[in-house]
Computed example of a mutant assay.
Amino acid sequence: MILTASDWKRIWTEIGERIEEKKEELCDLDRVIGDGDHGISMAIGWQAIREDLARLEREEDLGALMRSVSRTFLNAVGASVGPLYGTAFLRGSAVLIGKEEAEAEDVMRFWIAVANGIQQMGKAQIGDKTMLDTWLPIAASLESSLEAGEACEPALDKAAEAGRIGMEATRDLISRLGRSGRLGERSKGHIDPGAASAYVLFSAFVDACKRLKGASST
């Protein structure tokens, strides 16, 4: 798999479209254990990203592109998710700096860096009922695939499935952090909205890559 800057922009635009589609579902999850605006915050951030990508139509350096995306998301989203993803995309940009194409290893290392950036900023662990219950299994799966020399497409599929399982597992967890952490046992029985949006984001990336590959082979 090789993704050009044009491919990358298209994929990230499609992620934004998926976030917009899932906005109300994410808000519904957040109404149970949070402020009820997580889907709106994510949609606002991705609308800003889509506008930024359009403005950067001629930018070919993927690292520079993701640095801009990082700043854009951070500036657009005032909630705690803004600094988390702002940091994450900045960490990911370091993998791609100076590259006009992302090869399979670059793609996998980008997402590993994103997950690590979120953990460094948020300090949560698996089991805390946060977005890291999705992101850390994704990163661990990708690291395993890299070590095994696995091709990118099956590696992304496996990582997405690991993220889905991690997301689903938050249903049975008690929240330990943030606003939902004050609910104690009442937070149990509900999927964490941050974990859900993380899965929406990553699975949208995987699906967009597949569509892109399918289009290029016809």
Rank of each mutant, 00 (worst) to 15 (best):
A5I: 08
D7T: 06
D7K: 05
R10W: 15
I11V: 07
G16L: 00
G16R: 00
R18H: 09
E20M: 15
K22Q: 05
D28A: 12
D28F: 02
D30K: 02
D30G: 02
D30C: 07
R31Y: 08
V32F: 02
V32W: 13
D35G: 12
G36V: 09
D37V: 04
H38T: 12
S41D: 07
Q47A: 09
Q47C: 13
Q47V: 11
I49L: 13
I49Q: 04
R50T: 14
E51P: 02
E51W: 06
D52P: 08
A54C: 00
R58M: 08
E60L: 01
L62F: 10
L62M: 06
M66Q: 00
M66S: 10
R67A: 14
R67E: 14
S68L: 15
V69D: 13
S70T: 13
T72L: 05
V77H: 02
V81H: 01
V81T: 10
Y85N: 00
Y85H: 03
G86R: 04
G86Q: 09
G92C: 04
G92L: 04
S93K: 05
S93E: 13
S93F: 03
A94D: 10
L96F: 03
G98Q: 11
K99P: 06
K99G: 14
E100S: 06
A104L: 07
D106G: 12
M108N: 02
R109L: 11
F110W: 04
F110N: 04
F110G: 04
F110K: 09
N116Y: 08
N116Q: 13
I118A: 04
Q120N: 08
A124P: 03
Q125H: 11
Q125A: 03
K129I: 07
K129G: 01
L132Q: 06
D133G: 12
L136P: 02
P137Q: 07
A139D: 01
A140Q: 13
S141W: 06
S141E: 15
E143S: 07
L146A: 05
E150V: 00
A151Y: 03
A151K: 09
C152A: 15
A155C: 11
A155N: 04
L156I: 05
D157V: 10
D157S: 10
K158W: 09
A160M: 00
E161C: 06
G163W: 12
R164W: 03
M167T: 11
R176H: 15
L177C: 15
G178I: 00
S180M: 08
G181N: 14
R182N: 14
P193T: 00
P193W: 01
G194F: 10
A196S: 05
A198K: 04
Y199P: 02
Y199R: 04
V200W: 00
L201A: 02
A204L: 05
F205G: 05
F205P: 12
V206D: 06
C209E: 12
K210T: 12
K213S: 08
G214H: 14
G214N: 15
S216I: 15
